[in-house]
């Protein structure tokens, strides 16, 4: 019963997340106006039937810009999370499996990166390499992987001495084969949940960097830079910041709720309890 409810919740949030991804992918076709076309005669129009979310200081339609901005905001965050998940998981699994000097060196490097607040590190990277989306992604990636490395290392260590891994070793399988065939599928659940939860965090941080002028450069539409653009006119035209702000809020909330639901759904204890209940009902 509880599992059914969880399944329904998972489907609901997956559909919402899917809709967001589809919107971001086909944003170019969904925009009612050209997001970059300026018309100063329409500047700072409040939301209305012509422009559902109003217009900005250059008369650009905000709905079109929010839609166009979703492509950069969502896919840059997704790409970044995918990259840090893959890199962190690979590093963590290698450390957990091999141990020794590799574990010591990689984990100390992870500690070093974890010691930096991500935005401060990103500011430092921007200071050295300059602003722009690629450098913002690089900076957030550098401080994002250790979280996954630590998680994957701990989970791999727990699996490494389990009887089925030893049995696989005795069946003649080498380290790589065991890691990919047995360890990875058995540790993927918690990593996937953390990864989905991280999408929201990365989106906020990317938007934060753009807000500070270190991410996407104007006139490109991106939610963080759009909030920054409307900041000076917050008291006169609040919709200029509220529209992209609401888009960030909704997107982060959907991905966080999806992550939470996925965690509940994949909880092995809960699954085991449900399996036992099912078996009892069969008997």
């Amino acid at each position: 019963m509880r599992q059914n409810r969880r399944k329904k919740k998972l489907i609901f949030f997956s559909v919402l997340a899917g809709l967001l991804l589809a919107t971001a992918l086909f944003a170019g076709y969904l925009c009612p106006y050209d997001p970059y076309a300026q018309d100063l005669s329409l500047a700072q129009q409040p939301p209305g039937p012509e422009h559902l979310l109003g217009t900005d200081r250059y008369g650009r339609d905000l709905l079109s810009r929010v839609l166009a901005g979703s492509t950069v905001s969502i896919y840059a965050s997704l790409g970044l999370v995918a990259a840090v998940t893959a890199a962190g998981t690979a590093a963590g699994m290698a450390c957990g499996w091999r141990g020794g000097w590799l574990d010591a060196v990689v984990m100390r490097a992870a500690d070093l990166f974890l010691a930096f607040p991500s935005l401060v590190f990103a500011l430092a990277v921007a200071g050295v390499l300059g602003g722009g989306l690629p450098n913002a992604v690089l900076a957030l990636g550098a401080v994002g992987w250790p979280k996954f490395a630590r998680l994957a290392r701990g989970l791999t260590l727990a699996q490494k001495n389990s009887a089925y891994v030893m049995a696989s070793r005795m069946s003649g399988s080498g380290g790589w084969k065991i890691l990919i065939r047995h360890v990875l599928p058995n540790i993927a659940g918690p990593i996937l949940v953390t990864s989905v939860l991280e999408i929201g965090t990365m989106m906020m941080e990317l938007a934060g960097l753009s807000f500070l002028g270190l991410g996407v450069k104007p006139p490109a539409a991106e939610w963080g830079s759009m909030i920054s653009d409307g900041r000076s006119l917050l008291q006169i035209s609040p919709w200029m910041s509220l529209a992209p702000g609401a888009a960030i809020f909704l997107t982060v909330m959907i991905f966080n709720l999806l992550g939470d639901t996925l965690r509940d759904y994949l909880d092995p204890k809960e699954r085991e309890r449900n399996r036992q209940k099912k078996e009892e009902t069969k008997r």
Partner: peptide, 29 residues
């Protein structure tokens, strides 16, 4: 060595990968 010597574990359930069938476990070797 493992072609000549094998060990059978105390906990039968835990000695097979919970995500793979018994057949897959036997076929691996």
């Amino acid at each position: 060595v493992y072609r000549k010597l094998q060990l059978v574990f105390q906990t039968p359930g835990a000695s097979f990968d919970p995500r793979r069938t018994l057949g897959a476990g036997i076929r691996e070797g």
